[in-house]
Simulated scan of single mutants.
Amino acid sequence: MLVGCLGSAMAIAALGCWLFVPSVEEKTANAELAALEKGQAKHCISPLDGSNYYVDGYVATRMRIPKSYEHIQTNVTDVDAEGNHEFIVSFRAKNGFGGLTSGMAVGKFSNESCQVVEAKLVDAN
């Protein structure tokens, strides 16, 4: 009886290892996918609204009323040879008279740190 229980336990453990331990091919595929996603800036972009925390902070601090900054959309390129991503951000914010206006910012952020390297407001009404 004891031998049968031990044999069953070892078989279950071996089956569990076979089912849940990734193969070399799976590990390689996961590593390639992670590298691809890092090159596409997915680690820097929020899955909720597509924004970059550092870019939004950078742009918002340049508004007349920073608390009124509202992210609309962010478009990002793949990483370039310098290790940066170019971005275009569309946003809304209040102007000096309290009216809501739309604007756009362009620039670059680092693939490594996700922080803004350079940026400028190009269409802030």
Rank of each mutant, 00 (worst) to 15 (best):
G107L: 01
T61W: 13
S113Y: 08
F87H: 00
N111D: 10
V116H: 01
P47F: 04
N111Q: 14
V117T: 10
G103C: 02
V117K: 13
T74M: 05
C114K: 07
V117A: 05
F97D: 14
V59G: 00
A81V: 08
S90N: 08
Q73A: 14
V59K: 00
G99F: 13
G96C: 09
A105S: 10
N84W: 11
N84C: 12
N111I: 06
V106N: 04
V122M: 05
V106Y: 01
N75A: 13
Y53F: 15
V106S: 04
G83C: 04
T77W: 07
C44F: 02
H85F: 14
T101Y: 09
G99A: 13
L121R: 01
F91Y: 11
V116Y: 00
V76P: 01
L100R: 15
Q73N: 13
G50P: 01
H85Y: 10
S68K: 12
V122N: 02
H43N: 12
R92H: 12
V79G: 06
N75K: 14
F109C: 07
N52G: 09
S51D: 02
V79M: 06
E112L: 10
D56E: 11
K108E: 12
N95I: 03
P66L: 09
V59I: 06
D56Y: 05
G99M: 08
Y58A: 05
Y69F: 02
F97L: 11
G57F: 00
Y69V: 00
I88A: 13
T77C: 05
I65M: 15
N95D: 06
A60C: 04
A81Y: 14
F97C: 13
K108F: 10
V117F: 02
V116M: 04
N95W: 01
S68I: 05
E82T: 02
R62N: 12
Y58K: 14
V122P: 00
K108C: 06
K42Y: 15
K94R: 11
A81K: 15
T77R: 01
M104C: 15
G50L: 09
V117N: 10
F109V: 07
T61K: 15
K108L: 15
V79H: 06
C44G: 07
H43G: 08
G98E: 09
H85I: 07
R62E: 07
V116S: 03
S113I: 03
D56C: 04
K94S: 08
V79A: 09
M104P: 10
A105C: 06
F87V: 04
Y58L: 09
I72D: 10
A119V: 02
H43S: 08
V55L: 03
A105T: 03
M104D: 12
P47G: 10
D80V: 09
L100H: 12
E70M: 14
E112W: 05
T77P: 00
D123S: 14
D123V: 05
V79I: 07
I65S: 12
K120V: 06
L100M: 15
G57N: 05
R62C: 03
A93G: 02
S68H: 05
C114R: 06
D123W: 07
K42F: 12
L48R: 13
E118N: 11
A93L: 04
V76G: 03
P66H: 03
A81G: 07
